[in-house]
């Protein structure tokens, strides 16, 4: 693994160049208190004063609405046309939890039926991570096996260091990117980058205001599906899509056709949420998850158990987005703590 150093001034110039050569996706301050990952034309649009974006950046690999193919049934014949493959992109500024979010989505869209839309974007997107420099009160990544300087999964990991930035190429793609733009970097001869990152990691580790211990929670859930606790939580849930739409690991989608003239149209998919009542409602009205209780339970069981059962990965990376955005304070950290307490009394 090779490390490089870039002066503070070079960052802007390098990002301007990247924006010219690729679709560059980076954090933008859209509005007061709203940071979104969006395509940018250059460094000037980027906002680096953020801990985490309001909505997770997964949307650039798994868009909220994705056109899958166009169809035409004109003249009684069926013609299906593929959509254009996306242009090569770079996401700059991914925080470690969001990189982990993408690693959490990978096995879903792989497996026996690799998903070509996801795969295409994934393979055409270089991930440039950015170590956190502060911890917010909702962050709990370390409790979910990650950390604010743990950039595993990125192609290139950037750390702020004295007088500039340190870059570590974690994959051959990251290495290629460095080579392509080598004028901006100098090799790190004295392991400054790694040392700085480790030091930062240690400093930040002490700043988490709330940690959770997931030990035994999954095992408890394996044995206990029915708990009055879910009634209690679900009672205040609004059944909205906030927690699942902003989450970096939620992957549910719906598929729908749009054909205004009845003959030519497009089949798309769009995010959907297990918190919505019609998510599982079948033709005829039968709904296997008829009340918010079953839906809330499904979400938390997916995060804490089902994803582990299927892919041996936690379904939550501890980004804390749902913690801050849920309008009724349904806080996954509290849920984990409560479940653990129930488990101990069981």
């Amino acid at each position: 693994m090779k490390a490089y150093i870039m002066t503070g001034d070079n960052l802007g110039a390098w990002l301007d160049t990247l924006a010219r050569d690729f679709t560059l996706i980076a954090p933008v301050k859209e509005e007061e208190n709203v940071i979104l990952f969006k395509p940018v034309k250059g460094f000037a649009e980027i906002n680096l004063n953020y801990t985490n974006s309001t909505v997770s950046p997964k949307g650039w690999i798994f868009p909220q609405t994705e056109e899958m193919f166009y169809f035409s049934t004109a003249g009684g014949q069926i013609n299906l046309t593929d959509v254009q493959a996306p242009r090569p992109a770079i996401i700059f500024g991914l925080r470690p939890c969001d990189i982990k979010g993408i690693l959490t989505l990978d096995p879903v869209f792989n497996g026996a039926y690799p998903d070509p839309y996801y795969q295409n974007r994934r393979e055409n997107t270089i991930l440039v991570g950015l170590c956190c420099t502060r911890v917010e009160r909702h962050c709990f990544c370390t409790s979910m096996g990650g950390g604010p300087t743990d950039g595993r999964g990125a192609d290139l990991l950037v750390t702020e260091i004295d007088g500039g930035y340190g870059l570590e190429a974690l994959t051959s793609r990251g290495e290629e990117l460095i080579h392509r733009y080598q004028g901006y970097f100098t090799p790190d001869q004295h392991s400054r980058v790694i040392l700085a990152r480790e030091e930062l990691g240690q400093k930040l580790a002490g700043q988490f205001t709330r940690t959770v211990d997931t030990t035994g929670v999954k095992e408890f859930l394996d044995q206990n599906f029915e708990l009055p606790y879910w009634d209690e939580i679900a009672r205040r849930c609004l059944g909205c899509g906030i927690c699942t739409y902003i989450c970096p690991t939620c992957h549910c989608f719906d598929i729908f056709d749009f054909a205004p003239d009845g003959e030519r149209g497009v089949r798309s998919r769009c995010w959907d949420s297990c918190m919505f009542s019609h998510f599982t409602r079948m033709a005829g009205g039968h709904n296997p998850r008829p009340t918010q209780k079953e839906r809330v339970r499904n979400r938390f069981l997916h995060k804490l158990k089902y994803h582990r059962d299927r892919y041996d990965l936690d379904g939550c990376v501890g980004c804390g987005r749902c913690v801050t955005k849920c309008p009724v304070n349904i806080d996954i950290r509290q849920i984990i703590a409560d479940l653990q307490e129930v488990a101990q009394h069981a």
Binding site: A112, Y113, F225, C252, D254, I255, R281, M282, P288, D309
Partner: peptide, 19 residues
Amino acid sequence: LEMKMKCGIGKCGRCNIGS
């Protein structure tokens, strides 16, 4: 069994019964 389905290939997430 019957559950509401969309993708048919284990991705859209809606036909789960437990894991």
